[in-house]
C-alpha cells in the first residue's frame, strides 16, 4: 500500500513553513514521530527523493515522518538570504511543539542529514528544557566541520567561475565580497554572512558534552573502496561514547545528497527504521 504525503503549512512567527508528512494508515496506531532535518542548499534538492522514500517506508511501520522546509528554503516562506541559524532552530522547535500538541503521548525523534545533523544536534544543545528535545537523534553523513563545509560550498563559485570566465577569483576574494556586501551568490543561493559564520563556527569534534541521556546513531554512506566510517568521525564517536549511548554504522551506497543523478539508498532506510523501532523498546 503506497502512502501518499500530506502537506500542510505550519504558521510560525517566521512565516508559513511547509511540512510534508508521511502518516501511517491508521492514524491512532502512530508509535513514533520523526522530524527530518534537511541538508543545505543543493544538497536538500538532491536528497528530496531519498527523504521521501524513507518517510513513505517508515510510515508503513507506524512511524509518522515530518519533513520540514526550513525558512527561506523549498516551499516555505522567506528568502534564503534572510535565513539564519537561529530562525532554523526556532523552525524545528515550532514543529516539535506542534507534534507534541497533536500527539502528547508519542515520542519524537530526529533524523538529520549533513548540515541538518549539525542543526539538529545544535538544537538539542541549545534547549534548556528537556521537554523540547528528543531522546534520540540519527546523524546521516553528518558534516563534522562547519568551516570546511562552507569552504566547500564556496568552491562551487570558484569552480563555476573557472569554467565560465577568464577571471581568476580566489577564496579570499569571495570572503571579502561576503564580508563587504553581507552576502554572496553561490550556485543560485544568496548566502548571507551571519549564516555562513554560524555554520563555520560549528565543529562536532569540539562538542564534548552532549545533553545527558541523548542517544545517537551516526551513519555514513559510501562506495568501495571506502568500507568504514571516517577515522575522524570514529574519534568523535569514541569521545561521545564516554558519556552517551552512541552507535555507528557504515552503509554501502551512493552519496545521494550530491550525486549527479537523483539516487537513494534503500539500506539506509531499512537500517534507520530498525534503529528507530529498536529505540522504542529500550
Amino acid at each position: 500500500m503506497l502512502i501518499k504525503p500530506q502537506l500542510f503549512f505550519l504558521n510560525t512567527d517566521a512565516g508559513k513553513l511547509l511540512i510534508t508528512q508521511f502518516i501511517p494508515d491508521i492514524e491512532h496506531s502512530i508509535r513514533l514521530n520523526v522530524i527530518v532535518v534537511p541538508p543545505f542548499a543543493e544538497e536538500a534538492n538532491k536528497s528530496r527523493k531519498m527523504l521521501a522514500d524513507f518517510g513513505r517506508q517508515a510510515a508503513t511501520y507506524n512511524i509518522r515522518v515530518s519533513l520540514i522546509d526550513l525558512f527561506g528554503t523549498g516551499d516555505s516562506e522567506g528568502d534564503f538570504c534572510a535565513a539564519s541559524w537561529a530562525i532554523w532552530q526556532q523552525n524545528i522547535k515550532d514543529l516539535y511543539q506542534e507534534l507534541k500538541r497533536q500527539d502528547p503521548d508519542v515520542d519524537i525523534q530526529f533524523v538529520g542529514l549533513r548540515t541538518g545533523a549539525l542543526l539538529a544536534l545544535d538544537y538539542c544543545m541549545q534547549q534548556s528544557q528537556a521537554v523540547n528535545t528528543p531522546q534520540s537523534l540519527m546523524l546521516w553523513q553528518p558534516v563534522l566541520n562547519g568551516q570546511q563545509f562552507i569552504t566547500q560550498f564556496m568552491r562551487l563559485r570558484l569552480a563555476a567561475d573557472m569554467m565560465n570566465t577568464q577571471a581568476k577569483l580566489t577564496m579570499a576574494d569571495l570572503q571579502q565580497e561576503l564580508a563587504e556586501n553581507g552576502s554572496i551568490e553561490i550556485a543560485g543561493y544568496n548566502l548571507n554572512h551571519s549564516l555562513s559564520e554560524a555554520i563555520a563556527q560549528l565543529n562536532l569534534m569540539h562538542l564534548t558534552q552532549l545533553p545527558v541521556d541523548l542517544k545517537l546513531a551516526w551513519v555514513e554512506i559510501g562506495l568501495p573502496p571506502t568500507q568504514k566510517i571516517k577515522p575522524i568521525s570514529q574519534k568523535t564517536i569514541a569521545q561521545w561514547q564516554l558519556h552517551n549511548n552512541v552507535s555507528s554504522c557504515f552503509i554501502n551506497g551512493d552519496s545521494f545528497w550530491q550525486t549527479q543523478e537523483i539516487t537513494q539508498v534503500e539500506e539506509l532506510t531499512n537500517f534507520s527504521i530498525n534503529y528507530l523501532l529498536g529505540s522504542l523498546n529500550d
Binding site: 568552491r155 562551487l156 569552480a159 563555476a160 573557472m162 569554467m163 550556485a187 550530491q258 549527479q260
Partner: peptide, 18 residues
Amino acid sequence: LIGAIAEFDSMAVVTVIT
C-alpha cells in the same frame, strides 16, 4: 573533461576535489 563531458559541471568539480 571541462566542456567535453556533460556531467562535468561546477558541482562535479567540487565533488571531485572533495
